[in-house]
Each structure stands twice: as structure tokens, then as C-alpha cells.
Design a protein around this nucleic acid. Structure first.
Lengths: 101, 101
DNA sequence: GCAATACGTAAGCGATGACTTACGGAGAAA
DNA sequence: TTTCTCCGTAAGTCATCGCTTACGTATTGC
């Protein structure tokens, strides 16, 4: 639920690929795995982490499970970045202009 | 240099703590290590990764090495997120309104 | 009930990574 | 040059992680 958890969830390349796949539209586990060079259980495990981090949502459709981007969780991550950037860039500019380390 | 490298660099908690420390102002390796429960070499190794990812800059001041946020590299990461969010949230909203997966 | 589909979970393995201690190098002061 | 400060690097250890195969579960259709 924290931004740290979200960052860690998005760091591994394969898991980020899963997430970016969902950014292009909702999909089932099998559909996602078909487009990646890893097994279906691997994708399932990545989705578990993404779901725990509140980055994706899970919906049942028969025997399928459809995953999609969790817009609310994504917004929380964006808020963190916005606040971080405001603070960091402000201090950065101030140090450059003032010359004070 | 890629956003993937930047994401991976910011994922580990200790390394993110180093980065967030620099967001509050430039500092030397020793100063950073003094505020963290890890050794100085550990901080040095984290700074190396952050520098390779173009997230921090290095400046020499006598025997010290002063590290600071790399605003340009940070902006690149922000650009990636902006583009990602625009695409993801647009598709997300469209799927909700249209009801089409 | 029986078979098929789609998926999550458990167990195990190989690789990666974060950390430590020990050491060497570059700059400042005498 | 010698000494001190501050730092990067090398080597090694222990934990974590990402992946695979094997298996169990829930749902659909006959």
C-alpha cells in the first residue's frame, strides 16, 4: 500500500512488462503469459505482487481471472512523485542559485 | 540511463533512503552514512548505482565527494511516468465507460 | 458425476543483491 | 615526506528473488 511497495513491485523487468501490458488493456493470466518469455505461474506470481501493492485489480469471469490497472493505486504513486519532485527540484534550484551547499 | 534502470535503482529501501536524503540537500558520503544504519562503503555502493542511473551527480571538494540530485535524470523519469499515466488512465477510463475489454 | 479449462500454490533451484570487513588511493595540512 | 581525512574497491557471506515443474482448486459444459 505504500509507495515503497509500489516502487519495488515495478522494478523487476518482467513484472514491469506485465504491468505495462495491462496498461494497454485488461487481460487474463494466459493472455499475458502468451506475450512473455516466462511461464504462466511466473506471471501469476507477479500479478500477486502487483495486486498486493494495489497496482492492479482482479476480476473473475468464468474460469478466467481478468486483471487491470488499479487507477487509484497508480494515482497514489503519482502523488508521491509529485511531492518528491516539488521538494527535490526546489531545493536543487535554491542550492544552485544561492551557491550554498 | 533508461527509466527501467532508474526504477530499479530507487526500489531498494536503503538506496531510496540515500536518494531521499539527497532530495533534502547535497551531502557527502560520510554525512549520508551517519544518518543510516549501514556502513559507509554500503552507502558508497548505493551512490555508485544512483550515479550510473543518472539520478545523482558527484562533485569533488577536497577529500570529500559531494553528491546531489540529478535534476535532468529525475525529469526523464518523470516524463516516463507522465506518458505512462496518460496512456494507462486513458485506456482504463475507456474500458470502464465502453464496457469493452 | 465426469472431463476440460484457467488459474493459484508449494517446493526447489540457480542467480542476483545488499551488506560487511579489509585494503588501497587521492587530497589537505604539517 | 609524513600524516590524517575521506572515500572507492575487492572479496566474501547470507538472504532474497525470479523462475520452473508438479500439484491442487474452482468454474463451465456435457
Amino acid at each position: 500500500m505504500t509507495y515503497g511497495e509500489k516502487l519495488e513491485a515495478l522494478a523487476p523487468p518482467t513484472r514491469r512488462a506485465v504491468f505495462e501490458r495491462l496498461a494497454k488493456g485488461a487481460a487474463s493470466v494466459g493472455e499475458i503469459a502468451a506475450g512473455l518469455p516466462v511461464s504462466r505461474p511466473a506471471v501469476s506470481q507477479h500479478l500477486r505482487v502487483l495486486k498486493d501493492a494495489a497496482l492492479v485489480t482482479e476480476t473473475r469471469d468464468g474460469t478466467k481471472r481478468v486483471y487491470a490497472i488499479d487507477s487509484q493505486g497508480l494515482a497514489e504513486l503519482r502523488d508521491y512523485f509529485d511531492r518528491f519532485w516539488d521538494e527535490a527540484l526546489d531545493i536543487f534550484k535554491r542550492s544552485v542559485e544561492g551557491g550554498d551547499g
